[in-house]
């Protein structure tokens, strides 16, 4: 190979190398955006009332790492009404020591159990605008049986069964955590429209080994929570997916404060399984 040929080869290689970099950062200017209050309030029977009220930001809003609490929306009046009683949630930052869940409004009152119990949320912002929400506690749908199967490679899968009430429209959230609640292995939501029988089932892949710990959860959720979760997840996916069709997040809270968020009861069956 002559020196000329070698240079030509180098040139071609460099062109190919450069040409393979198909992603680049660009400068764009997004349309203006007004911050909205964001509510997250999950009512779990037997646990205290907690609510997280934050704010959304313009996508390119400056990030101040020295003050992570700047996202929190304080100075609002938060009340939850249940059984005709108003429970005032105090504006105080709290972290659940077991689950590390953060809240900035809470009460020491305990969320009562009871299928069909109705809860109402009233928030008044400092400017007088309001946020409202309503939820009804659903029945817990227990995971009534499970089978563990192994494949030829010694990997395990778990099939979990539950009774699906065909007389009503139901929505479910299924989660599998691996080892601890920090490690999510499976998380999806579905409605029962496609179930043909009353025997509902969820399964994992052959992904686990003997001795692994799985935390399985079956959450019986309201349609409003289903809509919130599905639209929120699709918003995340659509940003990264050229085939995706974005949309607006469907919230379960409304009001003059133009909020986004979810106010819902959590009717959950959760089991820990150590594979043999």
């Amino acid at each position: 190979m002559t020196s000329r040929h070698f240079k030509l080869l180098l040139l071609l290689l460099s062109i190919l190398t450069v040409s393979c970099n198909l992603e680049k950062e660009i400068n764009i200017e997004l349309p203006g955006y007004t911050s909205q209050p964001v509510v997250e309030c999950y009512l779990e029977p037997g646990k205290p009332y907690r609510l997280l009220l934050t704010r959304s930001l313009a996508y390119f809003a400056p990030i101040d790492l020295s003050d992570p609490a700047a996202l929190l929306w304080n100075d609002a009046t938060v009340t939850i009404q249940v059984d005709g009683q108003n429970i005032l949630l105090k504006n105080q930052l709290g972290i659940d020591p077991l689950t590390f869940q953060i809240s900035n409004y809470s009460s020491t009152d305990i969320v009562p159990a009871g299928e069909g119990r109705e809860f109402k949320l009233f928030i008044t912002m400092e400017d007088g605008s309001t946020i409202e929400g309503k939820t009804t506690m659903l029945s817990v749908v227990p995971m009534d049986s499970m089978t563990i199967e192994a494949n030829d490679e010694g990997k395990y899968r778990v099939l979990t069964y539950f009774h699906e009430d065909q007389s009503t429209v139901n929505y479910y959230r299924r989660m599998v955590n691996f080892g601890s609640l920090d490690s999510l292995n499976q998380d999806f939501i579905l409605d029962d429209k496609i179930f043909d029988t009353e025997k509902g089932a969820f399964g994992t892949g052959f992904s686990f080994a003997a001795g692994d710990t799985l935390i399985q959860s079956l959450v019986h959720i309201e349609e409003a929570y289903f809509n919130y979760l599905s639209t929120l997840q699709q918003s995340v996916i659509s940003n990264l997916n050229p085939f995706g069709q974005p949309g607006l997040i469907v919230s379960s809270v409304t009001g003059t404060a133009n909020p986004i968020g979810i106010f819902t009861g959590i009717s959950m069956d959760r089991d820990t399984l150590i594979l043999p």
Binding site: T54, R55, S56
Partner: peptide
């Protein structure tokens, strides 16, 4: 169609916390 805003999502214990959920406008 790009997001104009973002919000943080904590989720329930065992769920998936997402520090950035895109908020779409027009």
């Amino acid at each position: 169609w790009l997001p104009v805003g973002r919000l943080p999502f904590q989720d329930i214990p065992g769920g998936q916390t997402q520090p950035v959920v895109p908020v779409y406008g027009d």
